[in-house]
Computed example of a mutant assay.
Amino acid sequence: MDPAGARPRIHELDAARGFALCGILVVNIWQLTDMRAMVGAGTVDPMRHVLSVLFEGRFFPIFSFLFGLSFSLFLDHAAERSDRPRLVLARRLVALGVFGLIHHVFQPGEALLPYAIVGLVVLLPAAGLPRWGILLGGLVATIGVPVTIGGGLGLVPGLFLLGLAADRFGLADSLRDRGWRIAVVFVLAVPAAVAAGVWEYRTPYIALWTGSAAPVAGLLGALAYLTGFLLFRRTETGEVFAEVLEPMGRMALTNYVSATGLVLAADPWLGLSDSNRYGALLALAAAIIAVQALWSYYWLRWFRYGPLEWVWRCVTWWQLVPNRLTRQERRKLTVPYGRGR
């Protein structure tokens, strides 16, 4: 249960958020350290090109979609606790923007500040619209951006709206009953994602920044990854992975920001800056994921929220929110997160 409300946590979404964080980390490492993409005049590093097709633009859309969905869930919760839920949400987004401003000093390409701005400008006004209008707006914005401006942060408004619409249509609360629908989307998305990935791979690397190949392939890849992960989570092996990823997803803000510090601290030792040591990049990403998985798991044995999540919640509600778990609550956590849900 959400400690601050009566609505059960949706463990699939926590796990999917943790899954997206892992993929985003790979891309953030080469952006933070300014690794070389080229190995010669007009020749892209083969491993960088492969990693770009597998990771770049695939996990950021998942994270953005889940942000819009979580915004809707929190708005409903705020409406139950406050007579002015939009003010609560506005304060929450402003606090996120402050986190983003600070984080921007260390990672200029970070997403928190743009998320806060788009949330205030797009999500808050759109939350009062009919659900079909939100869905249509999300589809138009998401599909139109790759055709016009090429993707990147321009995809955020549309993906936010799609996440908001997903909750308005009851997707969040009925995920476990939609297995065959998710499977149908996965079966359709995989060949489309593969074809788009081939298109992206065959596009000259420099041209990817201005064309439609990368954003289209990224969106289709994100859809295939997300639906595939949701199906995989329904297996016994998938449950084990989910139990690792769920705590990371619950502490997404803390893990996203702390990963920047870990990358910057490790870079001088690994010599990633201005290099093409992509094997070392993958090793660093795996190490950070392992550290954050353990840290998140054990932190949430004792506390309700991650460190930054707790500060964020206190500012959101403008009061000191209890964070430390009681002894009785800790006993209940002997049951793994993913079991029995």
Rank of each mutant, 00 (worst) to 15 (best):
P3Q: 11
R7A: 12
R9Y: 02
L13F: 11
A16R: 07
R17S: 10
L21E: 04
G23C: 04
I24S: 01
I24Y: 01
I24C: 02
V27L: 02
G42H: 03
G42W: 03
H49Q: 12
L51I: 06
F59N: 05
F60P: 00
P61K: 11
I62A: 09
L69F: 05
S72E: 02
H77Q: 15
S82L: 07
R84E: 11
P85R: 10
R92A: 08
L93E: 04
L93F: 14
A95W: 04
G100K: 13
L120N: 09
L124Q: 03
L124H: 10
R131W: 05
R131Q: 13
L136S: 10
L139A: 13
G151M: 06
L159F: 09
L159T: 08
L162Q: 08
A166G: 10
D167E: 07
L171W: 10
R178A: 01
A183V: 00
P191G: 09
A195W: 11
G197M: 06
V198E: 10
W209P: 01
G211A: 13
L223T: 15
A224C: 10
Y225D: 04
L226R: 11
T227E: 07
R234A: 12
R234E: 12
V240F: 14
F241A: 14
E243V: 01
L245Q: 04
R250M: 08
M251K: 10
L253Q: 05
T254V: 02
S258Y: 02
T260Y: 05
D267A: 12
P268C: 09
L270E: 05
L270T: 07
G279Y: 05
A286Y: 06
I289D: 03
Q292A: 06
L294R: 12
W299A: 06
L300R: 12
F303P: 03
F303Q: 05
L308M: 15
R313I: 05
L320K: 14
V321Y: 07
R324D: 01
L325A: 14
E329S: 14
R331T: 08
